[in-house]
């Protein structure tokens, strides 16, 4: 098994872990963490799968670079929305 495939498999597990977390967790901050874990899993699948034969593939790498920046913007917006939730529902 190549390293790329190994990381793609890890990405699949992280994706499933994050998905389960989003459904099961109660606290909104934890759901934001789970959403980020899910995103990291998708990124690992994208790059790992493209590089399963070894050798770097710049196309998925550039896309993941874009994705990381979008993920932090989404997280910041989610955290700002979280702050606006009423006190009794953190």
């Amino acid at each position: 098994m190549s390293a790329g495939l190994l990381y793609a498999l890890a990405g699949v597990l992280l994706f499933a872990l994050g998905l389960g977390g989003i459904v099961l967790l109660r606290h909104a901050l934890r759901r934001i963490l789970a959403f980020n874990v899910m995103g990291s899993g998708a990124f690992l699948v994208l790059v790992g799968l493209a590089q399963r034969d070894g050798g770097a593939d710049p196309v998925p790498q550039a896309m993941v670079l874009t994705g990381i920046v979008v993920a932090v913007a989404a997280t910041a917006l989610a955290l700002a929305l979280l702050r606006r939730l009423p006190e009794d529902r953190p």
Partner: peptide, 20 residues
């Protein structure tokens, strides 16, 4: 870094871990 993606590694360390 292990996946030969130093660009993403830089961004992840600064943005994914640092800023987030």
């Amino acid at each position: 870094a292990r996946l030969n993606a130093p660009d993403i590694a830089l961004a992840e360390a600064a943005i994914g871990a640092g800023l987030t």
